[in-house]
Simulated assay, not measured.
Amino acid sequence: MARPRKPLLSRERIVSTALALIDAEGLAALSTRRLAAELGVSGPSLYNHFRTKDEILDAVADTVIAQVDVSVLAAGKDWRAGLLAWARSYRAALAAHPHIVPFLAQGPGRRPAGLKMADTAFGGMVGAGWPPALATKVCAMVRYFVAGSALGSFARGFVDDPSAYDPAAYPHLGQAHRLAEHQRRVDEGAFEDGLLALVDGLTLHHPELAPPGSDFRPQM
């Protein structure tokens, strides 16, 4: 009986295995030796597809960014709707792989998907009437906000033990132990409120750039 053949080694298989390893154990767990072991191949086999570990990391990062939907912003019509859709999709992609966020936060470098996202977002804002200098700042704001929110959970940063919050020392944290059980509502609610505040703030500061037909009214 013929022995079963090992799956062929490919860039896609290397990247998906590297991402799964990072998701499970963090960035520090990724090494070419460990990755080769996970794939069931010898270390040098990886170099037929990637020259260095950094190239593997770049490919992993680009795989994550390729999931981000920038299509609404690319249309260049309603920049408010475009920013909201982009930021939500961006956060969803990063939140699904939080361990890769510190690497992604360094910027796109030479990564094609990262550069494509940056080009599309910037082009969408300029196409909607934003001066290039302001469009650059807006795109930077979104990246800072999204990366920070995807890096970790605010709610899960508090332990669920009431005794950790001595009222004599922390008189305002009497309910902090309950945050973890409401993690999704707290974290996603904070992101949504912050995102709307960011976009509404841009409209207030630059009313001359409000999308045509916009019915935005500041909340007084």
Rank of each mutant, 00 (worst) to 15 (best):
D23N: 12
M1D: 05
R217L: 14
V138H: 05
L151F: 09
G124A: 01
T52S: 14
M1V: 10
A61R: 11
D69A: 06
L209Y: 11
P112C: 04
K6P: 02
L195K: 02
T136D: 13
S16L: 06
T63M: 12
D119H: 14
A96Y: 03
K6V: 03
V101M: 07
P131T: 02
A176I: 01
G194L: 11
A37D: 05
L173I: 02
R111N: 08
L202K: 03
V101L: 07
L35Y: 01
A59D: 07
F191D: 04
K116R: 07
E38S: 12
A135D: 02
A29E: 05
H205S: 09
L27A: 14
R217T: 15
T120N: 01
R33Q: 08
T136H: 14
E12T: 02
D54V: 12
G26E: 06
D215T: 15
R184P: 06
Y165E: 07
G201W: 00
D215R: 14
P212D: 13
A29L: 07
E12P: 00
L115P: 01
R111T: 10
E55S: 09
A29D: 04
R3T: 09
G129L: 05
L19Q: 01
G40W: 10
E12D: 03
D160A: 15
F122L: 13
A105R: 15
A140S: 15
V199N: 03
G148C: 10
L115D: 04
A29Q: 09
G201L: 00
M220S: 09
P167A: 03
T136L: 14
P162K: 11
G114H: 09
R80Y: 03
E181V: 13
R185C: 06
P4N: 07
G194N: 11
A140W: 12
A66H: 08
S71E: 13
S42K: 07
S45N: 02
P207A: 02
E12G: 00
F122G: 08
A74F: 05
V142T: 14
R34Q: 09
G40S: 11
R178L: 15
L46H: 08
G107A: 06
